[in-house]
């Protein structure tokens, strides 16, 4: 399958990042790998989109950042979901699913 360039709707990338962090803190590279991997290489997040997105989310207070040690003990910045981020994720998931269902419905019938 071809890789989809993630010039997706901005909200989509935010949603993906938030979802990825749901299972626990990760650093930036890990997040991009994770999305890459879970989407079976369909979604590839460029660094040019990822870091601005991370800072934007941090600015909004949905995620928190903290410096810590990576797997092989290197200094890395870890991002973690905040309470309001968790709420945002839940809301956006519902919205996204309804949106996707609606689009699917239209594509099916028309």
């Amino acid at each position: 399958m071809k890789t989809i360039q993630t010039d997706l709707l901005q909200g989509t990338l935010d949603l993906l990042v938030l979802k990825t962090l749901q299972s626990g803190p990760r650093h930036g590279w890990d997040i991009s790998q994770r999305i890459n991997q879970v989407s079976e290489d369909v979604l590839r997040i460029g660094q040019g989109s990822l870091y601005p997105a991370l800072h934007r989310l941090e600015d909004k207070g949905w995620i928190d950042a903290e410096w810590g040690a990576s797997e092989n003990n290197r200094r890395a910045k870890f991002y973690r979901l905040t309470a309001s981020g968790r709420k945002r994720l839940a809301e956006q998931t519902v919205i996204w699913q309804r949106f996707a269902a609606a689009v699917a419905l239209i594509l099916k019938t028309v």
Binding site: G46, Q47, G48, Y51, P52, L54, H55, R56, D59
Partner: peptide
């Protein structure tokens, strides 16, 4: 190559700091 312009990324991230 895949990373793209380092400065560009930095600039965009900076803007977002508000």
């Amino acid at each position: 190559r895949s990373f793209g312009g380092v400065e560009e990324v930095k600039e965009e991230s900076r803007d977002l700091r508000g």
